[in-house]
Amino acid sequence: MNPMNSTMNALAALGRSVMYALARMGRMAIFGFSAFSHMVRPPYYPREFANALLNIGWLSLPVVGLTAVFTGGALALQIYSGGARFNAEAVVPQIVAIGMVRELGPVLVGLMIAARVTSSIAAEIATMKVTEQIDALVTLSTHPMKYLVAPRVLAALITVPVLVGVGDIIGIAGGYVVAVQNLGFNAAAYLQNTVDFLEINDVTSSLAKGAVFGVIAALMGCYYGMDSGRGAQGVGRATKGSVETAAILILAANFVLTGVFFSI
């Protein structure tokens, strides 16, 4: 094949991929604006909102708690053994606190919500689309964005920061248990050091990240569900795509938000 043609074909394929990605980002942005606009305009569906609060918030507590407690414990062990290399074992309470609250708490909770909630929302809405339930909603004079999307996004916006707060506390508690039981730290001194070291900005940034990650997780689940193709394969692709995109967007948003909150 002519090398010039090969190069042009490769560039054309790259261009198509970029155009496709940009078009998809544009559709996601429009979908997000539409979701927020439906959130603030009646009619409202309080029952759907309550169900979403339960599913996204309350039922995610076990997985968030377990993730946080093991991460906090492992973090304490790592800091203790790593700190021993330069006689800094004593900083375990401070580093566990700052690590959990500023970074690991919100990111891990966000990723667990992407795994648990985004996938579930995408699969549910995609199945509704495949089985014509979305069309049925429309024929019953019910807007799918209002009935399916707005309650889930609002519930995630409210509950994920709470989950992050709970995750931060449980993670610190995990570190505390390991430090006091295994590493010989004084219980009262550990707690005092934790409280003294944390600043209000650490906590607010953690909760703000939770709100952003919650919106990303719910929006991606809804977007991919509503955009799903036909059949079981369409549902599978929607679910996989929603979790991948939510996870990447959460990590990217975490980088940006960390820069915004803590840039020196």
């Binding site: 169900n51 199945t127 509704m128 089985t131 014509e132 339930q133 069309d135 049925a136």
Partner: peptide, 9 residues
């Protein structure tokens, strides 16, 4: 609807 399209939940 052809498949009923009943809301599962």
């Amino acid at each position: 609807f052809q498949g009923g399209a009943l809301f599962d939940s």
